[in-house]
Amino acid sequence: MQKRTLWKLISVLTMMAAACGGGDGSSEDPAPPTEAAAPAFDPATAGNISGMVMIDGEMPAAEELTMNSDPVCAMSATNTMSNTFVGGNGHLGNVFIYVKEGLEGQSFPAATETVTLNQEGCRYTPHVFGVQVGQTVQIVNSDPTLHNIHATPTENDEFNMGQPIQNMTFERTFDSPEVMVPFKCDVHGWMNAYVGVVAHPYFATTGQDGMFDISSLPPGDYVIEAWHEALGTQTQNITVTTGGTAEVSFTFTVS
């Protein structure tokens, strides 16, 4: 009697274990394509924005990243310095610049080219970049070690995918504007990147010289925002005229 009850118990547990299959947590539903529409203005009247981002105060020293937790990273990494503060001579790189206001109600052609986020030397390249809503981001693992790619947006769907084999790729799109969507690798805690998702093609990321250009804007009044991962955001109002180039500069203060 006692043993019969035990066997019943074991049978129930076996069925429970069989029923507890897991999934990989991924969602392969493609994002709805952005509606292709002609620009709502005559390209011949377009203007441009040109500018630079400066830093007021001493640029914080780049932090050295400790990669000892993965021997492959420790041996293969060619750059172990943090990308949070890059630039020199008062110029600040890795700042995301975009048109925040002034384009409401307008539609823009969907971006067709694919943007690549590469994991190489146990770093994300690029560290800061932008895409349009619906634009494809191809994520590549160029390292001979495994990575997980964990995006933690608030307006878009969170995802976490594993890439255990070198040269694995997968593609993702974002359905809603969001500045910024953080990426991280939970295996290698020092790996992070940020993507600005915007509804239009008017964005740029500053290089090490702090310079940026945004071209072919419809003439009009705009609010431009500059975003830096450690120094926050700043906005400025500018006016773009037909055929003209509006100059703008941002200065982030480091205390």
Binding site: C20, G22, D24, G25, C73, G162, P164, V187
Partner: peptide, 22 residues
């Protein structure tokens, strides 16, 4: 990122050499 598998491996078959970082 996956469960109950680990990077597609059966749990006890996951290579020890890949147990790096997190």
């Amino acid at each position: 990122p996956d469960w109950p598998s680990s990077y597609g491996y059966f749990m006890f078959a996951f290579p020890l050499s890949s147990m790096v970082g997190g």
